[in-house]
Every structure is written in C-alpha cells, then in structure tokens.
C-alpha cells in the first residue's frame, strides 16, 4: 500500500490506525451523551402520564432535569475553550462546512442510492446534520427551558409557546438520538472509535477519503 510508505514520513503512528477523535473529544462526547440521557429519562418522567405515575417525586425530578439541562453545554464549552480543544475546534469547522459532494451524498442517501466515489471528508452529511441538530437542540431547549422554569420574567403566552416548542423539539430530538444510536450500533468500527479514538486506514479510505488525503498530506496539519 502506498500508505505504508507515507507513514514513515509522517508521525510514527502505530500501523494502520488513524486518530479520529482525541481524548478531549471523546470525553466531551460521553459527558454530553450522559447529560442527554439524564434529560431524556427525567423529561419522560415529567411528561408521559404512565411514567409520571410510576416515578412520581415531581420536585426532585424537575430539579435533576433543570440542573442537568444547565450543565449540558459545559463539557462542550470547556472542551472548546482551551488549547486542549484544538481537535474539537477543527472538527467543528469540518462539521459546519458542506461541500457540493456532501449535499449530493445526502440526496443519494435519501433516495437509497449508493454514495461511493463521492469526495467525503472526515464526516459525511448525515453526521454533519446530526451535529447541527444536536447544537440547535441544545440552544432551543436551554432557551425554552429557561422560560418554562423562570416564567415570571416573561409574558404568560411565552410560557405556553416555550412549553409547546420544548415538547415538540424533545420528541423530534428523541427520534434523532435513536437514529444516532442505531447508526452507531450498525457501524461497529465507527462506534469503537468514539471509545478508543482510533479508526483504520481502510475505513477512512472507504468512508472518508478526503480526510485520509488530508491526514497524509504532510503540510496540511501540524503533527501531534
């Protein structure tokens, strides 16, 4: 493989594995995931009649839900804030930008057409969409949650509107989370990489060819 010769010119990475997520990204992912899981379960215990009766303890559940909601963005913010967040910041830039091939990937995926031969980078359009929806959901839920929890500062109709949006986005986001977990479970190497950080060169060649080029181009990145 051409890659093996390149390897020696770049960093001395072990064999055919690439670093997909550094430890800061992994920790940020899992702390955010734990936060969302707490929020989904406590939210369900406040909203679904059968669970309301089963769980009860409304004051306690509300407190856990509100505290978890306020804490939710912290892992991301702290991870982004310092020098340690270089990898996460670079990945956020990647997630933000959609090439024409990304849009084509999304179009074909929706139509169940094969998506190979497209110039896909580290993240495909599905992953980019997931990341954007997670970000948007965090903002909307914090905003509407604040109006719901501290309603005295707002017009009465705002509380109704905020409750409505909070509930709708919660249901929609639940579907997105289930989709995210489904995709992870059906793509074991990608799933493993959010635990270990590593992914194989072969995987990158197949799923993220433009990223592989980027990694192999010595000038494109400071080695670290």
């Amino acid at each position: 493989m051409a890659a093996t010769t390149r390897r020696s010119t770049r960093t001395a990475r072990s064999s055919s594995q690439l670093l997909r997520f550094d430890w800061v990204e992994r920790v940020a992912h899992w702390l955010t995931a734990i936060g969302f899981i707490i929020l989904i379960f406590t939210g369900a215990a406040l909203y679904i009649p059968a669970l309301v009766g089963f769980v009860g303890r409304r004051v306690l559940v509300v407190r856990i839900h509100v505290d978890a909601g306020l804490a939710l963005p912290l892992p991301l913010i702290i991870s982004l804030a310092g020098s340690w967040g270089k990898g996460l910041r670079a990945d956020l830039k990647r997630l933000n930008r959609w090439s024409s091939d990304d849009r084509e990937w999304l179009r074909r995926s929706v139509h169940w057409e094969p998506t190979d031969k497209l110039a896909i980078g580290k993240f495909n359009a599905g992953q980019k969409l997931n990341a954007a929806i997670v970000g948007g959901t965090m903002i909307v839920m914090l905003m509407t949650g604040a109006v719901m929890h501290w309603p005295y500062y707002f017009a009465l109709s705002w509380r109704t509107g905020a409750t409505f949006i909070h509930d709708i986005v919660a249901l929609g986001f639940f579907v997105v989370v289930v989709g995210h977990i489904f995709m992870a479970l059906t793509h074991p190497p990608a799933l493993r990489s959010i635990f270990t950080g590593r992914i194989s060169r072969a995987w990158a060649k197949r799923h993220a060819p433009v990223w592989l080029e980027e990694v192999d181009k010595p000038s494109s990145k400071v080695s670290k």
């Binding site: 670079a90 933000n96 980019k128 959901t137």
Partner: peptide, 20 residues
C-alpha cells in the same frame, strides 16, 4: 477543512441558527 478542495457552505451553522 476537508483537504482544502473547497470550503463549502456553512450549512451546519445555518441549521443551528435556524433552529434557534
């Protein structure tokens, strides 16, 4: 990003801000 072939449109940011 993405090998520098093209910067692409900031659709991620648009989705986030649009939702907000």
């Amino acid at each position: 990003p993405e090998g520098g072939t093209q910067r692409g449109k900031p659709i991620g940011r648009r989705v986030v801000l649009g939702m907000a």
